[in-house]
Each structure stands twice: as structure tokens, then as C-alpha cells.
């Protein structure tokens, strides 16, 4: 497997969102997120882009298992959502970073839905700093070409730091 970098954004000062675009072929794409933090404790969300426009329609489905050390693993799922929640309790600094590998399928194919698999790991920023991560998938159920992925925070806080990189799998 090889990876060709398509886009990257290293956040060093607070921004409301990060968008990575440039998906233009039927190849599988991968996103790596490294050492990401928020300006206040919050959850990351995903939307996709079509023609560079962020899609906020209620056409997202998701299902995932949440792995954690403090309780029985849970299931997180929903249909016809306006966004994909893919984290829980991103921290603001220090040791509570968010790290993730995402695969994107069929994004450029106008006849297919846009599919996502994701796996992530963090120390959830709460009183006990619990090891936490989602393992799951999501889909945007609109059969038209997508060209990118958009990250933001549920509570409207800023992404304060982190490196977000989009690769083409070759």
C-alpha cells in the first residue's frame, strides 16, 4: 500500500473548522489526524463536501462501538443525522490529544453513497482521563460526487491545534 498526500492542514492557532478537499478519483482515500486539541472540552464532528461546499443536510447515518476502560463498551448509532459525531471529550492541552485514522470510499463516484470507516483513540478529558476510542463507520446517503471532508466541534468551540492530512491510497 502506498499513500500520496492530497491535502494537509496543521492548525497552530484556533480555527472553527478544518476542510480537506481534492478527492477526484475512485481510489480509496485516508485521513490521519494527529495530536488534535480543542479550545474547550468538546466533541469532533464530520461532514463531507461536494464541490467544496460543506453538506449539512440530514443524510448522515453512523454506527460505532465506543471502546473505553471505565465501563462496558457502548454502541453509538443514528440515522438521518446532520453530522457525524466521531469523538467524545477532546481535551484542550497536554495529554488529552485526539488521534485517528479514517478511510473514505466511493467519494468521487456520483452513483454511490460516500462511505467512511473510522478508528480513533484519545484520553477523554474528564476527571479521570479515561482511554476512549470509537471504532465504526458512517455514510452520506446521497448518490453524488463528494470531494472532501470537513471537521468541526459540536459545541462551537475552536480546533486549537492538530495535524489533519488527506492521502490517496495507491
Amino acid at each position: 500500500m502506498g499513500l500520496l498526500q492530497v491535502a494537509t492542514n496543521t492548525v497552530t492557532s484556533a480555527v472553527a473548522s478544518v476542510t480537506l478537499t481534492g478527492i477526484d478519483s475512485d481510489d480509496v482515500y485516508m485521513v490521519a489526524i494527529n495530536n488534535a486539541f480543542a479550545s474547550a472540552d468538546d466533541d469532533y464532528e464530520i461532514r463531507i463536501t461536494k464541490g467544496g461546499i460543506v453538506q449539512s443536510d440530514a443524510n448522515y447515518d453512523r454506527a460505532s462501538k465506543d471502546l473505553k476502560t471505565d465501563a462496558v463498551f457502548g454502541n453509538t448509532a443514528g440515522t438521518n443525522l446532520t453530522e457525524i459525531d466521531f469523538s467524545a471529550g477532546i481535551g484542550t492541552s497536554g495529554t488529552n490529544s485526539h488521534n485517528e485514522i479514517i478511510y473514505l470510499f466511493n467519494f468521487a463516484n456520483a452513483s454511490e453513497y460516500s462511505f467512511i470507516t473510522m478508528e480513533n483513540v484519545t484520553m477523554r478529558d474528564d476527571a479521570n482521563d479515561i482511554l476512549f476510542g470509537f471504532q465504526g463507520g458512517a455514510v452520506h446517503t446521497v448518490a453524488s460526487a463528494s470531494d472532501g471532508i470537513h471537521f468541526f466541534l459540536t459545541g462551537g468551540n475552536n480546533i486549537s491545534s492538530g495535524t489533519f492530512t488527506l492521502y490517496k491510497v495507491v
Binding site: N35, T95, S97, E119, V121, T122, M123, G133
Partner: peptide
């Protein structure tokens, strides 16, 4: 496996 930030002494080392 994926390993995140192993060489940094200012962050934990994470694994998938």
C-alpha cells in the same frame, strides 16, 4: 497497528 506521537516526550503514546 498505528502508533501516534511515540517520540514526543510531551504527549502520551497512543495505539490502534
Amino acid at each position: 497497528l498505528y502508533i501516534f506521537n511515540p517520540f514526543s516526550s510531551s504527549s502520551y503514546t497512543f495505539l490502534l
